[in-house]
């Protein structure tokens, strides 16, 4: 193969600006059904509870709520409320937004984390964000607790937990 002669050169920013192109900004809207299991999970959040599913065959207590155990391939055996506390399994300190735009210097940094929830089976974590903490002081293994929105503001969303903070 004459890989030394590969085709294409790519456009510079100036060439790209001058090139003829068509653009489209979609205005798509979706309404995603919560489903049976996540519907229960969100109802729990609205009530200030973190719900987990139990599987009586493998004995796991799993987050988030699910209709069937993916390991045993059978229906789960109901839900229980676990604690709203957990341990930081890993975290990041993020300086960019979801669309790769940069945070302004005075904006608080995003601190996403995987939090292993107390009362669920070992390793059962969820992704959420940390708050009310100096980013430099966050550590793996740190104990954190959910900070809930006031009852009147909860809508049945993962955002009903504003963030997790150290306790």
């Amino acid at each position: 193969m004459k890989i030394e002669k590969v085709p294409m050169k790519g456009l510079t920013s100036e060439e790209y600006e001058k090139a003829l192109k068509i653009s489209w900004k979609p205005k798509l809207q979706y309404a995603w059904d919560n489903g049976i299991a996540i519907g229960k999970y969100l109802q729990g959040l609205k009530e200030g509870k973190l719900l987990a599913s139990c599987c009586n065959r493998c004995g796991r207590i799993m987050l988030p709520v699910r209709s069937f155990c993916e390991l045993c391939w059978r229906p789960t055996d109901g839900e229980i409320a676990v604690n709203d506390t957990g341990v930081v399994n890993t975290f990041a300190i993020c300086h960019v937004n979801w669309d790769a735009s940069r945070l302004k210097p005075d904006e608080p940094r995003h601190i996403p984390a995987v939090i292993e929830i107390d009362g669920a089976s070992k390793g059962q974590g969820i992704m959420h964000v940390l708050g009310n903490v100096d980013p430099a002081k966050v550590k793996i293994g740190m104990k954190v607790k959910a900070v809930w929105k006031p009852v009147a503001e909860r809508v049945g969303s993962i955002d009903d937990i504003r963030f997790f903070e150290p306790y």
């Binding site: 919560n34 890993t90 975290f91 990041a92 790769a100 995003h110 969303s157």
Partner: peptide, 26 residues
């Protein structure tokens, strides 16, 4: 953004860089 679970993760406005940073730190 749309690779994340639409109900339990997207409301947190995650980026792909988040999860790689999480995995790299771990």
């Amino acid at each position: 953004l749309t690779i994340f679970d639409h109900t339990t993760e997207q409301p947190l406005k995650p980026t792909l860089i988040w999860i790689f940073a999480l995995e790299m730190r771990r």
